[in-house]
Nucleic acid binder design. Structure first.
Lengths: 350, 350
DNA sequence: GTGAAAGCGCTAACAT
DNA sequence: ATGTTAGCGCTTTCAC
């Protein structure tokens, strides 16, 4: 240990206490202090208590970098999501945080804002911060995802949820977007809709393409009905007005809407109501996500429940189990979460 | 540097590349590599390029711990919030993340779940992780907040937002809850409400106590009206039913409601509608936060706009400016953000 | 423009 | 039960 000959008092006030300070104070070795601090029972109880007291007295706090530098683990999980300010995403994050926290992991969260470039930057940051594991929901901007490959070479597990790669070796937590979209469409057909419209986003993301595919396939199975898909640049509450303007110019005007998220569906509903169009009589509507807004709008919005909190918890748990060596990720490829159609008044004609 | 005599090849594959590996490969010193990697222009451009190439070739990534261990900075900001899955909070977090990311900081987020004990644990974790700064919104469970004092002794700036300490030396980002609550109450009175009810949470938190005080003071200024405050254990959409049951048993039944958050206000509205009570004619309602749901419910909910995203951005910016030495936190005590009453149909009688 | 050397604070293998 | 020792990978004087 270096000696602080000059200005000792000032330095002592400024400097962080280390295990060496404790060791010196108690006339024992640093290793003993290190062990005592970890509660290692091989160390005399008496010594342990003394160390603890002295640590508190000196305002000691463990230096995670020094520790990480040695142990090569960070106890940190990186999370990259498109945006964190949606009901669905914050539910996912809350679930992850809960699990991570429970097992002693911290979470670093970053947003890609739907930009592949930002996603890459974020991935690089996570990589350099040496997160122990990574949880990702992709942007809908297309990219080769090569920047996630590097993690594999370092044995850092990556799991995806919701928006997952089309093809990947990584574990994915998803719902069966195809099936549930087909179900929703079938429901609209059963309610007597003849001219269906699917409103979604222009994207190659599995989430949206699968929903669109489910919609189209189901429409095609139906002999006397028609289906169109409207692909927009973004989906939000505010888009409602513009969307409705478009819809009302279509020939024939659709009588059934399957919208890829609830906020947009609600935006449409509000605008349709302004135009005096009756829901569900003239236009039956089904949304997606079971956002709280779906129960608040009048009439209540039929939607697909998507258990975000559970998805988050499961993804985090799976990652942590893997890190603790308690499960073998090679065994799991994909976890399909339960999503189901919730029928409410916005689509119920019978 | 240690030599890896045995099993060199295997080790080379597993081991992380370091600046020493690059140095050896290029026959230069580690210091030069270190400088080159940082783009230090004192190093020959040619050398810098070579180093860069070699780094990529070896899959080198900077070891932040070693770096942090030396520089004693983490470029990480800790965030502790009660819950992250509300519209308001995720807007705040999104704002913070945006700013933090822009200035090269990472964010570690944790939830206290309204428990003071968990808040303390989280603070301790942040402390030990040596965050460069901390942004906090408090639980509504009361505590002495002593666990935030330690940061000051280490010169780690702490800023609070939304739910802030009653007395503190730290910078706080808030709205004027008192004033805006008084305004909302005044508005209800102006609409002809005689029996007002404020629905809030049982808490000493500045946010709720100030809103309640604003309400009460304004009611007291009014000669011919009456005001009660209902303090609950929690506020949520789901509480609506139970709250309405209580309200309808009151004598006299209130004709004006000022609810401390929008979700709860909406919960009440839905339940009131079920009971056939007319809004705003029989019961005028004002909420708080300007959550998207306020524009979705029928009739639209009058509320108080609370600029969460801006609050988050400002809090983060202030913290980072301070970390960069660009502002003096001693100069700022409290930043009052703009919040204003938004009058919609749920309270408009005239 | 580049190198040598010391040390940030901790842990763990090995000794006693 | 405790101590000795040797680094983890980086940055940063100071020297040339």
């Amino acid at each position: 240990m270096p000696s602080f000959k000059e200005g000792k008092i000032t330095k002592t006030l400024k400097r962080e206490a280390t295990i060496y300070d404790i060791a010196k104070e108690l006339n024992i070795s640093a290793s003993t202090v290190s062990r005592a601090l970890k509660g290692n029972t091989i160390i005399n109880l008496n010594t342990r208590q003394k160390v603890q007291e002295c640590a508190e007295k000196l305002g000691y706090r463990s230096n995670t970098f020094a520790s990480n530098l040695r142990t090569k683990r960070t106890n940190t999980i990186g999370v990259i999501v498109p945006r964190l300010d949606s009901n669905f995403m914050s539910a996912c994050l809350a679930g992850m945080e809960e699990v991570a926290n429970k097992y002693g992991y911290n979470m670093i969260i970053s947003q890609s804002h739907e930009s592949a470039k930002k996603e890459e930057q974020n991935a690089l940051t996570m990589y350099n911060k040496r997160v122990d594991g990574l949880i990702v929901s992709l942007t809908f901007e297309e990219s080769d995802l090569s920047y996630f490959k590097q993690f594999k070479s370092k044995n850092v597990p990556v799991v995806f949820f919701d928006r997952v790669p089309r093809e990947t070796e990584n574990v994915c937590f998803v719902i069966d977007n195809y099936k549930v979209a087909a179900n929703a469409t079938k429901h609209l057909i059963e309610q007597g809709c003849k001219n269906l419209l699917h409103i979604t986003i222009q994207s190659n993301s599995n989430v949206y393409s699968e929903r669109a595919r489910g919609f189209t396939d189901m429409v095609n199975k139906c002999n006397n009905c028609n289906g169109e898909t409207l692909r927009l640049d973004s989906l939000s509450l505010e888009n409602g007005q513009a969307i409705v303007d478009k819809i009302l110019k279509m020939k024939p005007i659709p009588d059934g809407l399957f919208v890829a998220n609830d906020m947009t569906a609600v935006g449409c509903m509000l605008s349709l109501r302004d135009k005096g169009i009756k829901i569900p009589e003239q236009m039956a509507i089904v949304g997606f996500n079971n956002d709280p807004v779906s129960t608040i709008v009048t009439p209540q919005l039929s939607t697909v429940s998507y258990p975000g909190r559970e998805a988050g918890k499961l993804a985090a748990k799976s990652l942590i189990d893997h890190l603790k060596g308690e499960n073998n990720m090679e065994l799991t490829k994909e976890v399909i979460l339960n999503a189901r159609l919730i029928i409410r008044d916005s689509s119920k004609r019978k």
